[in-house]
């Protein structure tokens, strides 16, 4: 970890249009939760865990925040050519990558957890499952944030079109393919995050029943972080300046 790189990256990411945009998106679940409570229909615990937290927050907000921050920490610098000012220094590339990844993780986790906390509280206020579900989803999204950020950071080192490639992964692989072919859920960060949330919350199976078990989910997340993180370090060590640059 390198404090200077962390501070630099924070200044690169915070206080831009990107952040304003993310705050607006992070408010959406709360609006949705308010609308749901106002309508007074349905079981709050079931709706919150499957639709609001499991659907909107974990399936959309989490991967999109991870994509925005994960591809920005290095991808933007590589695009505009400033990455050289970090890479042409006698610092191990591992240190650069880990410092930057921590910033992406921190920002993603804060955005998603804050959004989830507010929206979840609105939706679940006064129910028995409030504490368990919120705790489960906060733990799971913090872990999921790291997994998404690591994978998308690796993606930004592999291709200049990481953002759209990440969108394809989120919408087509996690959204479409895992819905059609059950076996592919093992390779889906969304399902691992949901599995972990269900394991930590341990509420009734009638309320929230994710497809992956706790141990499997943890294993998938750890494997994703370890493999993508290791590959990203190797890729950054062997970073080559593009010919156009």
């Amino acid at each position: 970890m390198n404090g200077d790189i962390v501070r630099l990256t924070l200044r690169q990411l915070v206080g831009k249009r990107r952040t304003v945009f993310m705050v607006l998106v992070a408010l959406l679940p709360s609006v949705l939760a308010t609308a749901f409570r106002a309508s007074g229909e349905g079981d709050p615990a079931e709706w919150a865990s499957t639709q609001l937290l499991g659907g909107m927050v974990v399936a959309m907000l989490l991967p999109l925040a991870g994509l925005v921050f994960g591809t920005a920490i290095l991808g933007t610098e590589i695009d505009d050519g400033t990455a050289v000012y970090l890479l042409a220094r006698p610092i191990p590339r591992r240190e650069i990558l880990l410092s930057k990844l921590c910033v992406a993780w921190l920002l993603t986790a804060v955005f998603v957890a804050a959004s989830l906390l507010v929206a979840g509280t609105i939706a679940l206020e006064g129910t028995d499952e409030w504490g368990a579900l919120i705790a489960g989803f906060v733990v799971a999204t913090v872990a999921g944030s790291l997994a998404y950020c690591t994978v998308f950071t690796l993606l930004s080192l592999l291709t200049g079109r990481a953002f759209i490639a990440g969108l394809l992964y989120v919408f087509i692989w996690e959204g479409l393919v895992t819905a059609l072919f059950d076996g592919t859920r093992l390779l889906s960060l969304r399902h691992a995050t949901l599995g972990l949330a269900g394991y930590v919350a341990s509420v009734s199976r009638d309320t929230f029943d994710p497809e992956l078990g706790g141990a499997t989910s943890v294993a998938v997340l750890i494997l994703a972080v370890a493999a993508a993180g290791w590959l990203a370090v190797v890729k950054l060590q062997r970073f080559e300046i593009g010919e156009s640059g």
Partner: peptide
Amino acid sequence: RAYATGGII
């Protein structure tokens, strides 16, 4: 590119 793609989606 990333801003445009993000904005459109």
